[in-house]
């Protein structure tokens, strides 16, 4: 009480000073925010529910793949395994049977690698040069070429399957990996060319002009000026192609023979084989293994992916 009296007397003596003090004593600095406001509960609640909805199947898959068959027969799909076993994973990879073959997914994995790697590299190499030529060297007929390419992107795959089978047969590469790689490269061309064209068109035109004044030609400008500036869009193209080709089922089953089936086809054959008991744990493990590659690619390059998409895909 005495403190207050003392304070008051001081304040009375120096009224203007107190005025200034009151201003300083008011709210200052960052505005405090409540962590548990109604708005936050709504936002985070919704996010958590949606995340759970998407994660639940994955949870069930992982749990089931780690159980033995007796435990699965109990029917408790959400319960964590009592006894953890990696047997189903090993079986899915190395010894699950599809028809006569009993070497699991491993064959399909290596087939997919042998399909995806060359298809990705070849299609990106060609499409980036296409995009560069279309964006910077406005050659005669460029518009027409581009239009045809884009229209190609809108024709349904089903229409083209049979003609392509015939073409590949006539070329003598039907049923081979080479044939499938060519098909993947061609089908990736429209969207990749569009992607690269838009990215290169977004780079300052004066850079290209400066390089021409400096005496650089088509390939020198491409390799020394354009390529070093385009890492993000190459990452985007790579992710699109790797995931797209890895996940492809239709072309894999149509254009190859059983010994060249990619992983997705192999997975289907394992899961759908009707002989004997349905081994849910092996099926789950096989599915996760097949999806691991695109998942890995997304996690590793996700940040670059977003940057590249923002840079390349928006501008027309």
């Amino acid at each position: 009480m005495s403190d207050i009296v003392a304070f008051n007397s001081v304040a009375d003596e120096a009224a203007p000073q107190a005025q200034a003090d009151r201003v300083i004593a008011g709210p200052r600095g960052r505005k405090p925010r409540r962590a548990l406001s109604g708005r936050n509960i709504m936002i985070y609640g919704t996010l958590i529910v949606v995340a759970l909805y998407y994660l639940l199947p994955l949870y069930v898959m992982v749990m089931t793949s780690l159980k033995g068959m007796p435990e699965i027969r109990l029917g408790n799909i959400f319960a964590p395994p009592v006894e953890i076993t990696f047997e189903p994973w090993a079986k899915a990879w190395a010894s699950a049977c599809t028809g006569l073959n009993c070497d699991g997914l491993s064959r399909g994995f290596w087939n997919s690698v042998r399909i995806t790697v060359p298809s990705t590299i070849v299609s990106i190499a060609i499409a980036s040069v296409n995009g560069y030529a279309l964006a910077n060297w406005r050659f005669k007929g460029a518009e027409l070429f581009f239009t045809i390419l884009i229209v190609g992107a809108f024709i349904p795959y089903q229409v083209m399957i049979y003609p392509i089978v015939i073409v590949l047969r006539e070329m003598g590469i039907y049923g081979t990996l080479t044939g499938l790689i060519i098909v993947h490269t061609i089908f990736g061309m429209p969207i990749l060319t569009l992607l690269f064209r838009n990215y290169f068109a977004g780079l300052p035109e004066e850079l290209f002009k400066a390089a021409r004044v400096d005496g650089a030609g088509f390939w020198t400008i491409y390799f020394r000026i354009m390529l070093p500036m385009s890492l993000p869009i190459f990452v985007v193209a790579m992710i699109l192609q790797v995931t797209g080709i890895w996940n492809d089922f239709l072309f894999g089953v149509v254009f190859t023979r059983p010994e060249y089936y990619p992983m997705t086809v192999q997975l289907n054959n394992i899961v759908n084989s009707v002989q004997g008991v349905k081994e849910y744990n092996v099926n789950m493990a096989a599915t996760i293994l097949t999806g691991a590659v695109p998942l890995f690619v997304y996690f590793v390059s996700g940040r670059l992916f977003v940057r590249g998409i923002a840079a390349g895909a928006v501008k027309g």
Partner: peptide, 29 residues
Amino acid sequence: EPKDRGIGMVFQSYALYPQMSVEKNLSFG
């Protein structure tokens, strides 16, 4: 071709090659 005309050009946006050092920019041509 531009390179055979004996011209040098300076642009509004500078048009320096972003991935090269100043020295490389100067010596590229």
